Computed example of a mutant assay.
Amino acid sequence: MCIIIDIKGELQLQIRLQKYLSQAGIASRRASENLILQGRIKVNGVTVKELGTKVEPESDIIEVDGKICNIKREFIYILLNKPKGVLTSVKDPFGRPTVIDLLKGVKEKVFPVGRLDKDTEGLLLLTNDGELTYKITHPKFKVIKTYIAHVQGVIDEKDIKALQSGIMLEDGLTSPASVRIIKKLGSSTIIELKIHEGRKRQIRRMCAAIGHPVIDLKRTKLGKLSLNGLKVGQWRYLNQGEINYIKKLKGERKD
């Protein structure tokens, strides 16, 4: 953000366009950057494709796909226990059920924070606050995601050390995971894994890479947030303490 002085001598604030879009509840910062690059954003009637563009929220007119958007002053934060078979998306062109379909009574437009694949259940946040989404999803904040995985075969110490050291996947080496065995079931094992990355289907790919494909997968925690007895398919609003916790997250500096 920077400050400029207009010709009348009044102070005005400028912020990056992608930050404005996230604050307006259009999408997360990363998704907003894609909207800009796709040429779907106009500022004062001119299509903008440069990520460094700055806008004045109080005076500039910002359009997304031809519709004017404004920064929302009231945000909502929803914690959902996502069922298996439901897509983590706002809508699906094939008519399959999405997480938005589960939010009966919620009139505000919200979007998912990160993703859970269709066959994974558990904790998912949804909000119209792009800044909160940024803090949860950006790697520099290292928010720990806790999963309970039921995997094929018996996990041994060699497997645990491999997960703790990092697994080489097609998109690179994973960061070390925290792993503990919950229960051995003869031909399968239930384990708890904690990671801070958010790659696509990461837990499933990690387990498959060490020869233990996932049978069932559930996310139980996101940082300090937990399901806390919330049944599958149910949702609730975050309380103020939970919201404050996320807003106070501090990322690692890269000097």
Rank of each mutant, 00 (worst) to 15 (best):
S32F: 04
N34Y: 12
I36T: 05
I36A: 07
I36Y: 06
R40Y: 08
R40V: 09
K42C: 10
V43W: 10
V46E: 11
L51F: 08
G52H: 07
T53E: 14
K54I: 15
V55D: 00
E56F: 01
E58Q: 12
D60V: 08
E63T: 03
E63K: 03
V64K: 08
V64T: 05
D65Q: 05
I68G: 04
N70H: 12
I71Y: 00
I71T: 01
F75V: 00
L79I: 13
K82V: 02
K82I: 03
P83Y: 09
G85V: 01
V86A: 00
L87E: 04
S89Q: 10
K91H: 09
K91A: 08
G95P: 11
G95K: 11
I100Q: 01
K104L: 11
K104F: 08
G105K: 12
E108A: 15
V110G: 04
P112A: 11
G114P: 12
R115W: 03
R115A: 04
R115E: 05
L116D: 02
D119N: 15
G122N: 13
L125V: 12
T127G: 12
N128T: 08
D129W: 06
D129M: 06
Y134D: 08
H138C: 14
P139Y: 05
P139V: 09
F141S: 02
F141H: 04
K142W: 04
K142H: 14
V143E: 00
V143Y: 00
T146H: 14
Y147M: 09
